[in-house]
Write a protein that binds this DNA or RNA. Structure first.
Lengths: 188, 188, 188, 188
DNA sequence: AATGAATGAGAATTCATTCAT
DNA sequence: GATGAATGAATTCTCATTCAT
């Protein structure tokens, strides 16, 4: 039941937004009563928290898997991360949208649990960029922080436009993003 | 008064979110009453609409100014657009955040007014990319749509992290984004 | 309207108790809506607070009037205070009952506003007892604190049983309480 | 288990009040579940009833013990009753507070079981006063009903202020109350 | 141009209670 | 004896909105 509530909520939050979705709306789609909701979650915010946490935790876990592979060059790992993010939009997309949009709603206290994880993902990516610079793969004249923000911006933004099943496949987008990123769009 | 209400609302919407900000909150910070609000706006949604429209209209106007300059190369115009977006985060940043976050809230009908403008901005950018390809500035093997999404993602994402007055200046960020974009991050 | 809400609430609280009376109940008896209630009171607790404060403030004001009369003997003043309390049960009785019963419900913070006033009333009474002892009216071998608790207990308890319009008049009760108190019930 | 539930409930009811204490609260402090509660009690009201009944029954039983002693003078019996009440505040105090406060909550039907017992206690006391008058111990010019209410008020009120372990011992208070009551506070 | 009282619909949340296991 | 999932009705409270003045 708890799982069903989460699933259903994600769908609704994505479509209408968190604040615009009532507990009533959630339980109605499941054919249960509000009491049931509160049996599993102590508040609406806790549910959002649950969604956020499982999204970011999943992301970090898979990122660390990518980073662990010592033999791969930094560029391959960057590709992995971009793919990972875009894939998530396709697959777990609803969670992702909820994650990026409904952050402000969490209380200070809950944010203290989420923000560090979000930062960790960025930090890991930045480390990767630095590594690439050190081992001569990436240009040393670029600021790793800005590069990282650029990479994440490119990939994360896809939650705003990427349509699974549309003209562009997930792989095509990831490949092209990596291509752009590594060699630039200008003709040499 | 109308202006003051808008200003004040943007600040509040950015901080707490649209749904979490009540009309009471808005008028209280101005020391007026709810009646006053409804003298100027017919609904809360109309106010949000106002904010959205003036943001996107301003953006488009300035974009078209950039595009109009026939002599400039495409790369310079791209730079202009990136600068424009990042500048807006710095300057009109609150509007921008509200714009990106509180889209889902608008009714179908209001969205029909906003979405085409948003698309226009992207379309204009995509045209620019295509132009650059045609005149030999940009690589012809890249999909213009994806490139455009990448560019806008990079720049727009800055609303999530860019801090005016922080370590990175607006210009440093714009420059490096353009640099990355044109020549890539890989060592040749 | 605010006044009407208070009046109506006192009646309901007295009959059913605070927790058992809903805002719905209150507004229904007045033919208004819940919104109206919250226009005047920010919470149910605030309403209870209002009732408590105006009760205890009235009591203290009238007590101080009684005490001010320098020429009267302590015994007359004691009589005044007993009369005052019993009169209040008759007259403002509902408030009184609410006051004595629904104290625990107030939050710590609200209690900090009420308790000192309640204590002041007792303190004033105790001072009076001490004065009576000093000027030779009252027995010096009695503990003024206990005597005071006894007096207040006798009088306050009447909220549990005194029925205005019943066999016993307010004056008969006050007189007899004072008589008992001063000369005792034992035959000399 | 039933005993534990009662004990625990009294403590909670006294601290927060009956309506403000949930069954959840009660079972949580015992580490059991709500089902357990309903195995022993058919409703929350029944639990309150249980508490009330065992309090008042105990009181009456001990009062009748005091009254039975034919040889003792009325004044000694009055002392016994005052002691009894004050002792109960010290010892079973929580029950007492709950008893005095949470009466209004019981349904008509349950009240019909409690009120007569409460009245019996008062009636027994009043009989005692009348006896004292008849046998010449007490003044014949006082109304026995009022005297009784005065006595009970003095003693019962102690549930509002008496603090076991404070400056005043139970015996000191009882003694002084009896002294006041019998011979009055005025200097002869 | 602005106020302030009032509305009414709906929100989140609580909680006593039931019942199959 | 006890559990835990589920209910459903009620509760407090919020808030966009209206409207006479």
């Amino acid at each position: 039941m708890k799982g069903k509530i989460i699933e259903s909520s994600i769908r609704l939050f994505e479509r209408r937004g968190f604040a615009e979705t009532s507990i009533q709306d959630i339980v109605e789609t499941l054919g249960v009563t509000k009491g049931t909701f509160y049996y599993y979650f102590s508040s609406k915010e806790e549910l959002l928290m649950d969604i956020h946490l499982s999204y970011i935790d999943g992301l970090i876990a898979r990122q660390e898997e990518i980073l662990r592979d010592a033999s791969a060059p930094a560029s391959a790992k960057i590709r992995g991360i971009i793919s990972l993010l875009i894939h998530d939009i396709q697959c777990q997309g609803l969670s992702a949208k909820v994650f990026f949009r409904e952050m402000k709603i969490l209380s200070e206290e809950k944010l203290r649990q989420i923000v560090p994880k979000r930062d960790l993902f960025r930090f890991n990516t930045e480390q990767l960029v630095k590594e690439g610079i050190k081992n001569g793969e990436f240009r040393p004249d670029l600021d790793p922080a800005i590069v990282t923000f650029g990479i994440l911006g490119m990939a994360n933004w896809s939650y705003q436009w990427f349509q699974p099943g549309g003209r562009l496949t997930e792989d095509a987008v990831s490949d092209m993003f990596v291509d752009m990123l590594l060699t630039g769009i200008a003709v040499k």
